[in-house]
Simulated assay, not measured.
Amino acid sequence: MFLDGLKSKFMLALGACILGTSVAAADYPTRDIRLIVPWPAGGGADAISRKISNIAEQELPKSIYVENIAGAVTATGLIQMTNARPDGHTVGVLTYDSVITLPRGQMVPGYGLENMELIARITSEADAIVVSKHSGINSFEELIEKAKANPGQVRLGVAPKGSGPYLSANQLEKLLDVDFNVITYVGASSAEAEALLSGELDAAISSLGDFSGIIESGDAKGVIELTSVQNMTYTDVPTISSKGYDLQTGSFIVLAAPKGTPEDAVATLETAFKSAYDSEEFQSWLAQIGVTPDWLGSDGVNAWVEELQTNTFALMDELGL
């Protein structure tokens, strides 16, 4: 009889626990959602994250607030994300470095995509070469000509070694048979933008969207995009394929939550961000800054990341990086 009573209490407790979990899932979110952007404020990833989250929160009963936690090529912020309680109230932003640079180098203990639930890819952005108005360069052809005439002298800013732009610089040197003075910058593209403004750099590689402010002000100019698809916002910037070269490089924005986040919470987040993505406000804003909308939901983003890693790692092996 004692055992029957104990069993009965256990079943009641288990039922209460299951009911509590169901109620919690139904009530999600119960507090504001933290969106960790692992770059300093002011860069392209930061701007896109803030814009879409401001729209997405309109679909939710709670707000989404952005927290910039930079360091270790995005690992510092993303490790904080993966160590957070997996209840859907913490989300992180992944870029090229998060998916390629860090896993490739295995440079930060505790960091790994296996600790995340990928929610969706939001954008893809081709890399581009932007030149400073101080450089005296006005076209892709002039950039190549100056680099050939002055080996190792044209200062080209990129993100740290192993990053997408760094890989692009190596590929360009081989493709064009030139030698740039490649200078790496830790942090967001905002640091490269400042260097272009001051004349510290002749050129830099990142997306046109990352440099939209200084392009619009006339302090810099896009001379080539490393893609075969013409950017419909920056129609005056040619593709590298139009110049007879085959090169496709760039970055993206992917959203993720800590591993173990309930499926219902992931689904709620995906629905809210997809609604924001589809909105006229977000789509027109992306067009203004020259970023390509490129949604891929939770049902396909994992396979896409695996394929990207396989292809990119093979290329890095070939280049000895």
Rank of each mutant, 00 (worst) to 15 (best):
I253R: 05
D278T: 02
Q283F: 00
E263I: 08
F273M: 12
K274F: 12
G260K: 09
E280G: 02
Y245I: 00
A276Q: 02
G250T: 01
S275P: 00
K259M: 11
F273H: 07
A267D: 13
S284K: 13
A287T: 12
T249L: 02
S241G: 05
V254E: 06
D278V: 02
A276G: 06
D246M: 08
A256D: 04
D278Q: 07
L255P: 10
I240W: 04
P258W: 08
T261Y: 03
T271K: 15
A272V: 10
P258H: 11
S279F: 01
E280L: 09
S241N: 10
F282G: 13
D264Q: 13
E263K: 15
A287R: 13
E263N: 14
E280P: 01
P262Q: 06
D278E: 13
Y245S: 00
V254Q: 07
A276E: 04
W285H: 10
W285K: 07
D246L: 10
V266A: 13
L269P: 04
P262T: 07
A265H: 15
T268V: 12
I240S: 02
A272F: 00
K274S: 08
A287S: 13
T271G: 03
G260R: 07
E270C: 01
G244D: 03
L255Y: 14
T249E: 05
L255N: 06
S284H: 05
F282I: 13
V254W: 02
D246F: 14
A267S: 14
I240L: 12
V254A: 03
G260F: 03
G250M: 08
G244W: 15
Y245G: 01
P258L: 12
Y277A: 05
A287W: 06
E280H: 01
A272I: 07
E263S: 15
S251G: 15
G244V: 09
A257E: 03
L247R: 03
I240R: 00
Q248L: 15
S242R: 00
S241K: 10
S284C: 02
P262Y: 02
L286S: 03
A272K: 02
Q283L: 09
A265I: 08
T249Q: 07
L286H: 02
S275T: 12
I253C: 00
L255F: 15
T268Q: 14
S275N: 06
I240H: 00
P262F: 01
W285M: 06
G244P: 09
K243D: 09
K259R: 14
V266D: 11
L247Q: 09
L269I: 09
F252N: 12
A276S: 09
S242W: 06
E280S: 11
K243I: 05
Y277R: 11
A272H: 02
D246H: 14
G244A: 07
T271Y: 04
L269Y: 05
